[in-house]
Simulated assay, not measured.
Amino acid sequence: MTLAQVLQGYGLDGMPVAVALLCLFVIVLARSHLTYWAGRGVARGARYEGEHRHGPAWWQRTVDRTARLTSTPAARRGVALVHRWGPVAVTVAYVTVGVQTAVFAAAGLVRMPYLRFTLASLPGAVAWAVIWGTVGIGAVWGALNLATGSPWGLVVLGAVLAAVAAGVITAARRRTTAPAEAAAVDEPASSGSR
């Protein structure tokens, strides 16, 4: 009996379920910790910039972009959750949709101690891996199999993907044009008062 025969039928595409769950656990833990350290880097860079107020033009553009990103509603919501709930917000964020990245980055922004963040991450990462390694992936593959089982299912799947892409593009354009339009409206008023 070969190793492939032994592994066949044990889990997802021949992979034992325990190995799949461990892989998902490591992936989500790496993602959350990288996001945490990115938040810590932003906090440190902002503190440095506030103290020194100098640097090349590319650095100033980076600081401006980072300030815009950290002032988004999602970032403010993440910081508020971390301030209110602390490590519990980090644990619960793993099983939510829409605030995961904001909470992980906010934990870094408010400089939550790394050991506390890690201890809060472990149960959340386990829950995320179990949910996606069992029910989540099964639901996604089931939906794809149903959609691709008939030509009409494939058409509906394509339409849904196109609608999602259009929504994402529209939202991104609105976010980028709204500040520019606000600046254009304010500029003539300020130039007339000089």
Rank of each mutant, 00 (worst) to 15 (best):
A129K: 06
A93S: 13
W132D: 03
D64E: 14
V95T: 14
E49Y: 15
R84Q: 11
H54A: 10
S121K: 07
F104T: 03
T70C: 13
G108W: 02
R111E: 10
W59Q: 15
G86H: 01
Y94W: 05
V82Q: 03
G138T: 11
I137D: 05
L81E: 04
L69I: 08
V92C: 07
Y114T: 09
A107V: 01
H54C: 08
R47S: 09
R53Y: 08
I131C: 10
D64G: 02
V90D: 04
R111C: 04
V130R: 01
T134M: 09
V63W: 06
A102W: 04
V126R: 04
A127P: 09
I131T: 14
A120D: 02
V79A: 14
A127F: 11
A102Y: 03
L69P: 00
G133R: 11
T66W: 08
A120K: 01
P56A: 12
Y94C: 08
L119F: 08
A57W: 15
I131N: 03
R111V: 05
T101P: 05
V99E: 07
S71A: 14
L109P: 03
G86I: 03
F104P: 02
G86K: 00
V63D: 04
W59R: 15
Q60T: 12
T66P: 03
A102C: 06
A125K: 06
Y114I: 09
T101D: 10
P113Y: 00
V95F: 00
F104W: 15
G55P: 10
A105F: 01
L115D: 02
I131F: 15
Q60I: 09
G78Q: 01
A57C: 10
Y48K: 06
Y114K: 02
A75S: 13
T96L: 12
L122F: 12
T91E: 02
G138Q: 11
W132I: 08
R77S: 13
H52E: 06
R61S: 14
G50P: 05
R84S: 08
L109I: 12
T62M: 14
A46N: 10
R111W: 03
R53I: 14
G133Q: 11
R65W: 15
I131H: 05
G124N: 07
Y48V: 01
T66Q: 12
E51C: 07
V97E: 00
R47V: 09
A125V: 09
V63G: 02
V135G: 13
L109W: 06
G138D: 14
R84T: 09
T91R: 05
A125D: 10
P87G: 13
A80E: 07
Q60N: 10
G124A: 08
E49C: 10
L81Y: 06
A67S: 14
P56E: 15
M112W: 01
P56H: 14
L109S: 01
A102V: 00
F117K: 01
R65N: 11
V88P: 03
H83D: 13
G138W: 12
